[in-house]
């Protein structure tokens, strides 16, 4: 019986790991902060699932308060990003990926247009 349950745990762990890896790929690609937020939601839920899997495998309850905290931290993170970091100024990405740096060229990092957050943020606040 324990070997059967061990097999189940291994399969579930592989599925969770694959889902987390795909979510990380989405976080890297973006293209906007909101897409990264969604990827982070998947990643947080997957980490909660991994903790639950560990608790089910070892039959110990020490992991359960961590799951409670994680399910709240993910909420705070996505709400904060959606509220304060959703509006990205044109031409100035908040996170410069290596691909974006290559597309822009190497020399225009310094003379990028100045960020004007005040003019852009009005739509996000209410």
């Amino acid at each position: 019986m324990s070997t059967v349950l061990g097999t189940v745990v291994v399969i579930a762990a592989v599925l969770l790991l694959a889902g987390a890896a795909l979510a990380v790929v989405r976080i890297e690609r973006g293209p906007s902060m909101l897409d990264r937020t969604i990827g982070l939601d998947v990643l947080t839920t997957t980490i909660v699932g991994a903790g639950a899997l560990e608790a089910a495998w070892s039959r110990r309850a020490e992991m359960l308060p961590i799951l409670v905290v994680l399910s709240l931290v993910g909420f705070v993170g996505s709400v904060v990003v959606a509220r304060f970091a959703a509006v990205e100024p044109e031409g100035e990405a908040l996170v410069r990926t290596p691909r974006a740096l290559r597309e822009d060229g190497d020399d225009d990092v310094d003379d990028a247009p100045a960020v004007e957050p005040r003019a852009d943020r009005e739509g996000a606040d209410e």
Partner: peptide, 10 residues
């Protein structure tokens, strides 16, 4: 549950 997490990643 793990399969649903994987499907969300996809």
């Amino acid at each position: 549950g793990a399969f649903l997490a994987f499907s969300a990643g996809v």
